[in-house]
Design a protein around this nucleic acid. Structure first.
Lengths: 185, 185
DNA sequence: CTTGATGTGTTGGATATCCAACATTTTCGC
DNA sequence: GCGAAAATGTTGGATATCCAACACATCAAG
């Protein structure tokens, strides 16, 4: 009954900001991207940016969701199962995104970024798990999603330590069997 | 002294409309493009379109200028001479644009489009000629630009009649010597 | 430490854009 | 032809966006 559609200007402006940010991320280190850079590229006023986002990390939070979904090729992520292929896609999305970010530690922002990535991962994984196992209690699925998100992020950190040796896809695939079948007995 | 810079919203909206129009032109026939199509793609309100343009032919007029300049690779067209290369570029820009428009006669709109193309051509040619011959009287250069614009447009119509036989570039190059050196005596 | 330069956030009044509604014209099937 | 559907333009009040200015934090250079 309560629809309350949002003003088209809001949708347009958000899209302009998101696109500009993602575009800039592929050209510059994250730590070098300023709010002014984004608003200039998006052709909107700096004040307008703060009307929509609490700050650049709030934007990062929401943009990351977009990136993960795009790399998953699923606008209807709600209807997607947690398949082996989706796990690989998620991992690749993470590593792709991370190399576009700063490598240098920037005043503890690394941990902020890490938290954002894990949070978004957890949300996506949880939704997939709920869809895949509609009869299970949600608490167990939630914890499963939490642990998987930490595990995937940790794997991406491990991959970063020696990225030149193997592709992200091949790297994560070595772990897939354990994720799917457990560690056994 | 009098600067009076225009509101950024105006520049952004105009760009969104132009880009959407040019984008749509490459997918649909011109006669099938409606104002609603453009505003939907540009994510702006239909009323806003009329705030900026008198109608779809006013947009066509201004967009055509953009296309011609882009195909000329000269943002600073003011500082460009009327070289052989620029003539070829102009002709290619015209034919490229025409094939993206409707082929069918659409209530005499063909003539409207033709007039717009010639008008824009004339403006560009005149500016180039004035720059190239700063000492000549402008009346002569003006008439020269007028005749050249009609001639170029006529050549594009002739090329359309049997376009499959030869490329626009090769087609116009057969006429370049006469344009440059005159018909002789 | 001081100074200048740069980035972050915030605010109040001005303005471009939105919406809903309307009249008119064009298009198209019957 | 006729009527319905769709496209074109136009208007007044609501709202998102812009601008200029401000306070504050950060950082490098002298």
């Amino acid at each position: 009954m309560s629809e309350a559609k949002t003003d088209p200007r809001i949708l347009r402006t958000r899209k302009l900001i998101m696109d500009s940010f993602i575009n800039l991320s592929s050209k510059k280190e994250f730590k070098d991207i300023t709010v002014k850079d984004i608003t200039t590229e998006a052709m909107i006023n700096r004040a307008t940016f703060y009307y929509h986002f609490k700050g650049i990390y709030d934007l990062l939070d929401k943009a990351l969701t977009e990136v993960l979904f795009v790399n998953l090729n699923c606008r209807d992520y709600e209807n997607s199962d947690l398949t082996k292929e989706n796990l690989v896609s998620l991992f690749i999305a993470i590593t792709d995104f991370q190399v576009s970010l700063s490598n240098r530690c920037h005043r503890g922002y690394e941990e902020t970024i890490a938290r954002i990535i894990r949070d978004q991962l957890e949300v996506i994984l949880f939704r997939m798990l709920v869809r895949q196992h509609p009869d299970e209690v949600e608490e167990g699925l939630k914890l499963n999603a939490t642990m998987l998100s930490w595990g995937l992020y940790g794997a991406s950190m491990e991959w970063r330590r020696n990225r030149s040796s193997v592709s992200p896809e091949k790297f994560i695939k070595t772990a897939i069997p354990y994720i799917q079948n457990g560690i056994g007995n």
